[in-house]
Every structure is written in C-alpha cells, then in structure tokens.
C-alpha cells in the first residue's frame, strides 16, 4: 500500500497525489461539494445565487421572521424530541431484554427489527398511513410521534444491543451474586455500561426524525407542518434564498448531533 509518488517538476500537482488517495478525495468532494455550495449560497447577498455579491445574514434574518417556518421548526423539534425519547426508552428496554433473556420468538423479533431497519421509508410510510386511517386517528403530532418512533426504534435497539454484546454475560450474574436484585443489577450494571450507546441512540433518533421527509409527508395532516415538508413546498414553489439558509441550519444541527453520537460510541475504543 505504500505509494512513494513524489512531486516532480513539470508533471503537475495531480501526479504527486497517489491515485488511490485522489480517488478518495474525489468521492468526498462529490459527497460534500453540493452542501458546501449551498451553505456558501446561504450567505450570498445575490438573490439568485449568480456570482458572489457579498456576505449577508439577511436570509437567516428573514427565516427568523417567518412565522410559518418558526411554527414548523417548533413542530419539528417537538416531534424529534418526543420520538427520540420514546424510541430510546422502548429500544433500550428491548435491547436489555434481548440481551438478558432467552425466550421463544427471540430470533423472530431480531429478524423483524432487522427488516424494519432495512425497509425503505416509503414502505413504512404507506403502511403506517393505512394503519392510522384504519384506527381513525387524526393525522398530526400524535401520528408523527408514533411513526417517527417506529423508524428510530431499530436503530436504538440494535445500537444498544451491540454495545451490550461487547460485555461479559457474567456481569449481571456477578451483581446478583453480590446481593443485587434483577432490577438493581440492570440499573447499576447494564444501564451504566450501555449509557454511551443509549445517548448516541437518542441523538441519532433526533436527527433521523428532524430530517425525515418521506414518512412525515404521508402521516401528517394539513394543520401540522414540519420543517422538511416546509422546505419541500418552498422548493416546489421556486428558489428562495431562505431555503438555503434553512437547509444549512438543518444540516448543521444534524452534523453536530451525528459527530457527537459517533464520538460517544467510539470514545472508549483504543
């Protein structure tokens, strides 16, 4: 894997970079360039994004004054916090159950989690819509909460479960042996060990919920708009520089949450 290409005068800079590394850089550019241009555009004074006409925060300011966007933002944050919390509670308890107990149907449950994780958003969106209508639920906050919890759940469960798998099975037995009841053993030993994964699960769920457009599009009603849907309709109505600002903000929140979650999951690996 050692590539000792050196810069040779007259052969250009590209020749100095090993081809493998150049390829990697190009892929990263492909993944990040569109967002970089968009974020840059959100600070561009030009209304139509043609050429750089100076730095401005106008678009962020007009976001802050847009009542509809503020409402959608509040809704989004509420749904994300509620869904992430419920998914974290159910998912963590579920992961503890899957880790600690052997029961009939355990494999089936794991399989169902895996399938849910892999299934495309739109399949989940359609079936949940059918369920909610069938139950005569009013589409809005409550249905969004249930639906978002649903797609976050496998992520939390499998993340926490994977973390627990890394620990000695005898730890809970040791706690019981030393006088802890089952619940005390879980509270004092299992949950503290799983804590980084639980926190990461919450952060990832929050991000997933905040960013979701497909499921939300199907399961919310006209009176309860969330940010991605607001962006979607703004985009369809034509380019507005405020969308750049909003998209940049959303990206920044996701980015920081994901980086934090990754750090939590990997910090005690050597």
């Amino acid at each position: 894997m050692k590539n000792t290409a050196r810069f040779e005068p007259g052969k250009g800079i590209a020749a100095a970079i090993p081809p493998g590394r150049l390829y990697g850089v190009l892929i990263y550019a492909f993944l990040y360039l569109p967002m970089a241009v968009l974020i840059l555009g959100s600070f561009n004074a030009s209304k139509y994004g043609i050429g750089w006409q100076g730095f401005t925060l106008d678009w962020y300011e007009s976001l802050a004054n847009d009542a509809e966007i503020l409402t959608a933002a509040r809704n989004s944050l509420a749904v994300a916090a509620l869904s992430a919390s419920l998914a974290t509670v159910v998912g963590t308890l579920g992961a503890v159950g899957l880790h600690r107990y052997r029961f009939r149907g355990r494999k089936f449950l794991m399989g169902l989690l895996f399938v849910t994780l892999m299934s495309p958003d739109i399949v989940m969106a359609v079936s949940l819509l059918v369920l909610f209508i069938g139950l005569h639920l009013e589409l809005g906050l409550f249905t969004l909460w249930l639906a978002h919890t649903g797609f976050c759940l496998p992520f939390v469960t499998l993340t926490v479960h994977a973390r627990l798998q890394g620990f000695d099975n005898a730890l809970v037995e040791a706690a019981r042996d030393l006088g802890a009841g089952e619940w005390t053993a879980i509270r004092r030993v299992v949950l503290p060990l799983a804590l980084p994964a639980i926190a990461a699960g919450w952060l990832m769920s929050f991000t997933l919920s905040l960013d979701d457009a497909v499921v939300s599009f199907f399961v919310t009603g006209p009176d309860f708009e969330v940010l991605p849907l607001r962006i979607y309709s703004m985009v369809r109505l034509g380019v507005k520089p405020e969308v750049n600002a909003l998209a940049s903000l959303l990206f920044a929140v996701s980015l920081s949450f994901v980086v934090l979650a990754q750090w939590l999951l990997h910090k005690d690996r050597h």
């Binding site: 620990f167 000695d168 005898a170 730890l171 037995e173 040791a174 706690a175 042996d177 030993v189 503290p192 060990l193």
Partner: peptide, 11 residues
Amino acid sequence: TVFQSYALFPH
C-alpha cells in the same frame, strides 16, 4: 462467587 472471567464491572 469468583467468576472464571472475573466479571469485574468495567465502569
């Protein structure tokens, strides 16, 4: 019990 793997609480 002293467990074979010791089962010391890492946290």
